[in-house]
């Protein structure tokens, strides 16, 4: 065998190991969720259940409104993403292309918030939303997500990197700034918008600390909070019987949607995330 073939084989061997390690925990979650409880705690490693059962999925769906939590998460994440796209493409465009007093200082203040842990804002936000009577609503999660910093930064970086000729042309044709932004700039900014959309969606979808504090009922409770509050396997977190099968079934249900979406749209995901790092 040639050296080339050998190194190919080695490469594929490593690839298999990498894939297995990356996916094993997810596979184990799925396997466990499909086993009867007695089989779950039998010693020895059973990757394929001896008896398949959907009982855990049935009981978890009976007991907890997982569909409602998922819907809440979807609504909040989608609304937050749209809000961020709107606000950040406007602001990012202005910061990159327009000259105005206070631009530098404003942008510096915004960027500096990257280092402010959101935990410092949680208490005042909590009081603010309580006073507005908006705790336990979608708004309480959507609005703070709109104040995201990376989106503005990424949009600005993007607009700095593209030439302004098209905009100039439109301006000479007499279009207003808002019109230029809408019909010339935004279509151009598709890659950056995709990146910001994916990042925002992922971070809102995954957001836990703030929704944990601000939601109270199933009407607003998002998926991460529902999972942590009702399916935790940590002893003492949920009083009463803890069923591993049920927790894994819930986890599998929560993981299913994003994994499917990711696999279908993986090209956009990976490009989108990649873009967030390039122009540091």
């Amino acid at each position: 065998m040639s050296k080339r073939t050998l190194s190919r084989i080695a490469w594929y061997a490593v690839l298999v190991v990498v894939i297995v390690l990356a996916l094993a925990p997810i596979a184990w979650m799925l396997t466990t969720s499909l086993k009867p409880e007695s089989e779950i705690i039998s010693t020895g490693i059973q990757w394929i259940p001896q008896t398949f059962t959907l009982e855990h999925f049935q009981s978890i769906l009976n007991r907890y409104p997982m569909a409602q939590w998922t819907l809440n998460s979807l609504i909040v994440s989608t609304a937050a993403t749209l809000l961020v796209l709107l606000l950040d493409s406007l602001a990012g465009y202005a910061f990159a292309r327009m000259q105005f007093r206070g631009r530098g200082i404003l942008f510096t203040i915004i960027l500096s918030m990257l280092f402010v842990p959101i935990q410092i804002t949680v208490v005042p936000l909590f009081i603010l939303f309580s006073r507005m009577g908006l705790t336990d609503t979608y708004w309480a999660m959507i609005l703070p997500a709109g104040a995201n910093v990376t989106g503005v930064f990424l949009m600005r970086q993007f607009f700095l990197s593209v030439p302004a000729e098209l905009e100039e042309a439109a301006r000479i044709d007499g279009a207003s700034s808002l019109r230029i932004w809408w019909s010339v700039v935004l279509p151009l900014a598709r890659p950056a918008l995709t990146a910001v959309a994916i990042l925002t969606f992922l971070s809102t979808w995954n957001s836990f600390f703030w929704p944990l504090i601000v939601t109270r009922t199933d009407a607003a409770r998002t998926l991460p909070v529902g999972i942590a509050q009702f399916l935790s396997l940590r002893p003492g977190m949920v009083q009463g019987q803890q069923s591993i099968g049920q927790s894994m079934a819930g986890a599998a249900l929560a993981a299913f949607l994003p994994i499917i979406v990711f696999v279908v749209l993986q090209r956009y995901f990976i490009e989108g995330i990649a873009r967030s790092g390039i122009k540091g």
Binding site: F126, T135, D136, L212, I213, R216, R221, Q229, M237
Partner: peptide, 11 residues
């Protein structure tokens, strides 16, 4: 409204 006691008391 049901949630874990600690966040419930916070609210």
């Amino acid at each position: 409204s049901v949630q874990q006691w600690s966040p419930l008391f916070d609210q």
